[in-house]
């Protein structure tokens, strides 16, 4: 993990380029906050909400921000900072056109200066200008070779975003993509670990029940399993329940002597 900024606490960062506008918040602190989040155990949703809040706070005049996530479950928005951003996003998925889908597909940053004059996404532009969205900036979320979505800010004024905002969005999108990929794989690893633990507990119960059956009547593991499976079918219960009941009953009998 690279350390994105080395500023002392409280000191304003010196921009390395002469910005058109000075950033409204300390970007170095914002990036630090996100880098720290990777190391802590936050949920994906918390991480996404932080990303959109930062995007809205670091681009002047922004009305709403959101993250579009594209994966095997489809396209959806998460952590939209307000209803307008959510609606504008929903229209993109509905019409299957719009700046964020283009940013995601082409891996290029997309800027719309005025939705009433921009001709690239006519249906979407017409729909969102009715919602009061006039300018848009959308940056792709790239992890290595893979494009996992886009992050966007909407503004109700035309011509709102310039080169400085593009620069800020690129920086944020780079961090957000790493963050998203990390939290997604962390959530996935946790899920798998929980499932494996459950699977092993069930497997233990079945192995103990197999032992009980071999000690009483079964001629081998295969027959013991067949007995458990037959009991499961007759009682309408999963094999794991039958195995647990069998072991519990055997223990109870021994306790009685």
């Amino acid at each position: 993990m690279t350390d994105p900024a080395q500023h002392a606490d409280g000191a304003a960062p010196q921009p390395f380029e002469d910005p058109v506008l000075s950033p409204p918040v300390d970007l170095g602190a914002a990036l630090n906050q996100m880098a720290g989040l990777v190391l802590s155990r936050e949920t994906v949703d918390t991480a996404l909400a932080l990303v959109t809040t930062l995007a809205a706070a670091t681009t002047a005049g922004t009305l709403g921000a959101a993250v579009t996530v594209v994966d095997e479950h489809g396209k959806r928005s998460r952590a939209a900072s307000n209803a307008a951003a959510e609606q504008a996003d929903a229209l993109q998925y509905e019409l299957d056109e719009g700046p964020c889908l283009t940013a995601w597909r082409t891996r290029q940053l997309v800027r719309i200066d005025d939705t009433t004059t921009d001709g690239r996404w006519p249906r979407w532009n017409a729909a969102v200008s009715a919602l009061g969205v006039r300018s848009v900036l959308s940056a792709p979320l790239l992890v290595g070779e893979e494009s996992i979505g886009a992050m966007k800010v909407y503004c109700e004024r035309p011509m709102n975003y310039g080169p400085h905002d593009e620069h800020v969005m690129r920086l944020l999108a780079g961090q957000a993509a790493i963050l998203l990929a990390n939290t997604q794989s962390l959530a996935e690893a946790r899920r798998l670990s929980r499932q494996l633990t459950e699977a092993l507990a069930s497997r233990d119960a079945i192995a103990r029940a197999t032992g009980v059956l071999i000690a009483t009547s079964a001629t081998g593991e295969q027959e013991a399993f067949a007995t458990l499976a037959a009991a499961a079918r007759r009682t309408g219960r999963p094999v794991h329940d039958v195995a647990s009941a069998l072991v519990a009953a055997a223990v109870a009998r021994n306790a009685r002597g």
């Binding site: 007759r234 039958v242 009941a245 069998l246």
Partner: peptide, 16 residues
């Protein structure tokens, strides 16, 4: 209840 009875039957079969 059926499960308990079934399990008892299995255990009552006794050792081979």
């Amino acid at each position: 209840e059926p499960l308990r009875r079934f399990v008892d039957d299995l255990l009552d079969r006794g050792p081979p």
